[in-house]
Amino acid sequence: MNDLEKYILKNRDELDHLEPVPEEAMWKKIRANSIPQKPPTRTGFNWKLLAIATLVLSVAGWGLLFFKKQATVPPVVTPPKQEVPIAEQPLEENEMPAVEQTVPIAARQPDKPTQEQIAAAERKVPPSIAKQPKRKAKRVTEEEAAAQTTIFAEEQELQQLVVQKQQEIGLDTLDRATYADLLKELDELEISVAEARRDLGGIPQQERLMETLIRYYELKIRILEQINYEINKQKYHEALEKRI
């Protein structure tokens, strides 16, 4: 290596600063030629819509199941209608006696059919058919009970997970303004599930309600995880700021 080579290598860095570099102009062209932009992290996922869709599907599914069951149940045999004078009906407390008129016995809700009426109805239905719904109803109830126990355990597990996530995040002390979007989604989810509890609160709907609740917990956990991710991202950027 001669002196010229040595001199060039010694001043190597200078060689990278001799010409003016049109940095801004080139950058604009690079941007215009599309640096691939990854889509921004989705924080605005519409959990409410998803929750509502879940609820609608749940209710629709239950409704379908209910009507299907109704269609397969043998027709209820009602005792022959008899008309009795209103005056013979027992009066409720503080109820004024009515004027003379008649109502069908079937419409008198508090009254139960008499033994004679039941016996008469059973005579019209073959015993094999008459007893079938009763046995079937008992078996279904046991299965349902087992299923509900499983779902209940699952719900409890998810509930614990939600509590754990909330504690990790410190949800109660979180700055609501910073995570407004996600917290709003969480609130909307709470409203949706409250509506579900109200609409599906009856005993026959318990299974559907439990399924809806489990879905609700799953959604809630996902939102909490999203909040956790945002918190960690914020911490990372704060750490970078401190390095200045």
């Binding site: 990278d16 010409e19 570099v21 940095e23 080139m26 950058w27 640096i35 990854k38």
Partner: peptide, 24 residues
């Protein structure tokens, strides 16, 4: 890699001079 434009600009600024002169 995450698509941070500010970071991309910074990476470009760090190396554009050397790369331009190399290519030139």
């Amino acid at each position: 890699r995450n698509g941070d434009e500010q970071a991309q600009r910074q990476l470009y600024s760090r190396y554009v001079g050397a790369m331009f002169h190399t290519v030139l």
